[in-house]
Every structure is written in structure tokens, then in C-alpha cells.
Design a protein around this nucleic acid. Structure first.
Lengths: 194, 194
DNA sequence: GAATAAAAACCGACTGGTCGGTTTGTTTTT
DNA sequence: AAAAACAAACCGACCAGTCGGTTTTTATTC
């Protein structure tokens, strides 16, 4: 079918991830992207309307993986889900160094660009609701103490984001994976019924 | 003396804050800055060696205000200090919308630019140590339960940063000031001796 | 299944414009 | 008058996006 087309598109996508994370959205020019992907500028603009369009495609793909992860943990109990997340910490912090700057870039773009904000805010709300529901489920199941699910959700997400940010700022300043594990333990300890 | 010179410098500085926050470091050109400040490019490059030099000057000034705030609360007890911080929440969240994007920009630049990273990481370590010492003081004073000050410090800072980030992402998604107050209450409640 | 037509994918030189920084010259301060 | 502060024209590099033309793939006809 359009096998070559698919290949080109994915070459652009992975070059974009690579260059956007290392040099940033602005610093990585379309020419750079094309050179790295080994394609021409014409091919690039055949697949993406603009540079921002590519950016949005990247965002989409990234949100998709989160949706998949959520889907995969749908039938677990609340404490089990938290355990799953904890188990993913080593992988998360290992890959944070490459992926996080781009994540920050998304944030920055979203705070200034209406189109990107719209594309980000909906999934953000979806994830927040999912997480809140998860905590509420834990409370209803009787495994968590009576907390405000909404508030607790905001807190947990905050802690996670803050830890990731700090680990980006100062990767060698602490054993971040350990800090994350102990923080989670502390949070869960306060959440679990004794 | 060099009164006019001082004036020009501060005009550049405040225009930089204004334009960097609204449009971003890259998008705000030196020409834009000069136009906004009402000066010429010659004047700009008389005061700052490069655009990045201006950026670093901004960072310096901002770190100075933090140092001042810390200095001003040096003789308070640990719980009193936390109270002070809580009282500052309304102001912090009010001004977050303008200042935060620039803060994020600092972060992003720091993660990619050795010079800016060096200028950021030292104060970051200083603040972390100060905060850790504050918690240790609270434990020693007997007002806090026995926690790991290092870990607790990382957690509290994470929560604060995460809340600020979320409020940037979705300013109207929650009453962030209220979430912050309740989160603090929750954290302190777990910290204070009963 | 070979020939042909149509469509999709791709190429790369080119454009209009921007940007960080420099240079040269003028005004102001001391 | 010397030095510091500022103005304005200028420079070369760069960059997102375009466009006319070419190659490859797919669909159609015989």
C-alpha cells in the first residue's frame, strides 16, 4: 500500500522526538529534522502542514500511550494500581532525562498557544477525573481512609510532577527513584486504612 | 552619576520580564525589547553582552528576592515559617500566571544550557539545604514528628511545584489557592505532633 | 500481464523575512 | 576633551514555508 509513506512519516516523528528533546522546539529547524530523518523538505511538508502540526502529532501519540496504560489497568483495585505505578518508577526516571524536556516544552507551548492548550487540556481533565475516581473507588472499597478524592488526586499528581521536575533540574542531586518510592510509601501510608 | 545609565538598564530589565513572560525567550527578539523599552540596540548591547547575558541578569535578580525572603524569616520557628508561606499563597497564585512561564523557561534553558544550569543549581542546592534544615529544626524543637528531613523537604517542594505547574496548565480547572491551602494543611497535619 | 493513465510521494532550489550581533557616528556626562 | 552612553544603519546567518518538476506506487484498460 503506502508502505514507503508510513516509513517516512515515522522517520520524521522519531527524528522530531530526538531533536526536540535535545535542542528544543525552536532550535530544531525543519531542515535539521529533514537531514536527520534522511528525507527532503518536500516530503516533510507533504506529511505535515506546518511545524506545529508535527508538534501536535507528537502530542497525540504521547497521549495515546497514556490512554493505553490506563486502559490496561482498568480492572485492578486502587491499591494494586498504585503498586503498578510504583513498579514503573525505575523506567520512568531512567527515561525522564530524554523525555522530560520535551514534556516541559509541551507545557510551555500550551500556556502560550491556544491550539496546543486545547489539545492538552482535554486529556488532562480526563486523567484527573480518572485518578479522582480511582481514589474514590479506594475509599468506597474500604481500603483507603476517608479523604477528599479530588484534593488527594491533585496532591499526588503534584508530587509526581514536582519530583520529575526536580530530577530534571538536578539529576545527580538525589537518588530520585528512591525519593519517589519513599514519597509514594509515605503518601500511601497516610491513605491506607490501618 | 550614571543616573541615566541606571534608568536605561532597569527599563531593559522590566521590558525583558514583560516580554519573556508573555512571548517566551526565543520569541521575544532584542529588537522587540528595545522598542518596548524605548531605547536603541546600541544602548542594549552597551549594558548586556548578549541576549543570554540579560537572561542571566534576570535570573540573578529573581534569586535575590528569594534570598531576601529567606533572610527575613530566619528567626521564626519551623511552624511559624510554614504559616508565613501559607499566607503568601494568594499573592503567589495571583502572580503565577505571568511569572510561571518564565520560570519554566528558566528550567528548560537550564536543562540544556550548561552556563544557565550552573547559575541555577547552586541556589537550588542552597534552598534545599535551608528547607531541610528548617524541617530538622522543627523535629529537634519537638513540634514535628520524627521524619526524614531530606525526604520531607523534597516532597513538600515537589507538591508546591506540581501545584504551580497544574495551575499554569489549567488556571480555571480548580480553585488552586484553596487546593494549595488544603494540601498544606494535610501535609502539616501529618507533620505536626498530636 | 503488459501498457497506460492517474495519483501519491518525494525532491531541493528558492523566497521573503527575521534575528542576534556589529559598526560607525552622535550626544551626554564628568 | 576624554570617556561613557546612546542612536541608527547595517550584516550575514538562518529559517519556515513554497513551488515546479521528478519518481514511485496504484488503478485501469486491453
Amino acid at each position: 500500500m503506502q508502505q514507503r509513506s508510513e516509513e517516512t512519516r515515522s522517520k520524521i516523528l522519531s527524528s522530531a522526538i530526538k531533536l526536540f528533546s535535545t535542542h528544543g522546539y525552536n532550535a530544531a529547524s525543519v531542515d535539521d529534522l529533514c537531514r536527520d530523518a534522511g528525507i527532503s523538505k518536500g516530503a516533510f511538508y507533504h506529511h505535515f502542514k506546518t511545524k506545529q502540526d508535527l508538534f501536535l502529532a507528537l502530542l497525540d501519540g504521547w497521549l495515546q500511550t497514556i490512554d493505553n496504560a490506563i486502559e490496561a489497568s482498568k480492572e485492578l483495585t486502587a491499591p494494586e494500581t498504585f503498586m503498578r505505578i510504583t513498579e514503573a518508577f525505575p523506567y520512568i526516571f531512567e527515561t525522564a532525562g530524554e523525555g522530560l524536556p520535551m514534556f516541559l516544552e509541551f507545557w510551555l507551548q500550551a500556556s502560550r498557544d491556544e491550539k496546543i492548550w486545547q489539545a492538552s487540556i482535554k486529556p488532562y481533565h480526563r486523567y484527573h477525573k480518572h485518578f479522582t475516581a480511582l481514589i474514590k473507588k479506594g475509599v468506597d472499597e474500604g481500603s483507603f481512609v476517608e479523604v477528599d478524592p479530588e484534593l488527594t488526586s491533585r496532591m499526588i499528581v503534584s508530587t509526581a510532577m514536582g519530583l520529575l521536575l526536580q530530577s530534571l533540574m538536578d539529576p545527580k542531586g538525589a537518588k530520585w527513584e528512591k525519593v519517589a518510592r519513599e514519597s509514594t510509601a509515605m503518601l500511601i501510608d497516610n491513605l491506607l486504612k490501618k
